[in-house]
Nucleic acid binder design. Structure first.
Ligand SMILES: [Mn+2]
Ligand SMILES: [Mn+2]
Ligand SMILES: [Mn+2]
Ligand SMILES: [Mn+2]
Lengths: 212, 212
DNA sequence: TATATAAGTTAGGTTAGCCTAACATTTATG
DNA sequence: CATAAATGTTAGGCTAACCTAACTTATATA
């Protein structure tokens, strides 16, 4: 079976980037997957060559739009399988991740959709993680039009200070936002819950969202 | 994921040996799996080293008892998965083999048993093949005691003429037999349907059965 | 801001599982 | 029973995905 490793890397990167809400470091993939830094480095280059991730020498890593698409396909299968194993087969929640990690590479899109339906379209996996809807594609916050609404996926910010600021504004995964106003090459005004905030255009191109 | 190839080889060998009711040739594995003769030769040696098959240079191949056990584990998973994909998910019968071929390596024994129960313990897969019961272990016909009953699994006969004779007596996979009499180092007398037949002791050690 | 520590890279290797081409042995058949 | 065809083996090679050890670059902190 092909691409098993690539799929595991993509799912790992997606998970880490969402978890940290920023671009990730290769050592984290190494720790998450239990694979040496050298091997991770090798795979990182392959994924970059396929334009699934953005990566420069000695720098941090983040998924491209194409990478998010691919990652969500496998995350979707993984979480649907976990739900199936847990809710329908009654297998312990502590065991389902490991088994889904194997099955995710073999299950077809068709079968995953049928499982989804059988489960009555769950929103989350047994561990509480959101099951992605890969029908809606990710884009950058800056691409959303005025008056439209979107959900934050995660950012690709590199700097920790910048991230702190963004997080403290409430720009975190799953946050719902509405674009209020856009000034050419200037800041973006948006509604987030009850508060209105403004974000620089440069940062807007570092935030992945999904349009509602 | 480890042992994927080995499991595919074991399932292929089990299928072929049962299908032909005799020891098989490596070229058949090659054709069945779409793998070169050279590669099959390589794997054959590994399986023989692990005592999963019996094999001598330039000779035919058959599963050992241990090999049957291992093969049945994967055949069981394969057919249960096919049944699940077909009957519960409603995936076309023409597609389920391919998908089960991938999933069989990742599904746990526990999950397979739960699927089995969910399906209400089917006896056959969507293509009509018997789902093996790996609780009962295979042994040689000669090992069965007088008055006991058994089901033929398959033979490990090498010679085509010998096989013809055995097949024509009704010693074919799934045949039910009862041992009527055993003469030390002599022939075995057995009941097969309405007829009583006698089989030489040498042949008895070439027929795998499962005791009832 | 110098230096220690962490992170990332490179070089060199291993293993499983595949391949083709050439050669050896067995089996089938005229 | 000789020879052609089929089957099996060997030699040599390849790729993906891993590894360790040594080295380079970036980051943290005193
Ligand atoms: Mn999981
Ligand atoms: Mn996996
Ligand atoms: Mn099948
Ligand atoms: Mn398989």
């Amino acid at each position: 079976m092909k691409d098993i490793s690539k799929e595991d890397y993509l799912r790992a990167i997606y998970h880490l980037q969402k978890d940290q809400n920023m671009a990730i470091r290769s050592v984290e993939i190494s720790k998450y997957l239990g694979i040496s830094k050298a091997s991770v480095n090798e795979m990182i280059r392959k994924l970059a060559k396929e334009e699934l991730i953005e990566y420069k020498l000695y720098s941090s890593i983040n998924l491209t739009k194409k990478g998010i698409e691919e990652a969500e396909k496998i995350v979707y299968k993984h979480k649907i399988l976990e739900s199936f194993l847990s809710k329908i087969l009654g297998i312990g929640k502590n065991k389902v991740h490991e088994e889904a990690d194997k099955l995710e590479h073999g299950v077809s899109k068709e079968a995953a959709k049928k499982l989804d339906k059988l489960l009555k379209n769950p929103k989350t996996c047994p561990h509480g993680g959101k099951i992605p809807n890969s029908d809606k594609k990710a884009c950058l916050l800056g691409d959303i039009c005025v008056n439209n609404e979107a959900t934050v996926l995660f950012t690709k910010i590199k700097n920790k200070q910048t991230l702190e600021r963004i997080n403290s504004l409430g720009i975190v995964p799953e946050a719902k936002i509405k674009i209020l106003n856009k000034i050419k090459k200037g800041p973006l005004e948006l509604q987030l819950g009850n508060s209105k905030i403004a974000i620089g255009g440069d940062i807007c191109s570092q935030i992945y969202v999904k349009e509602k």
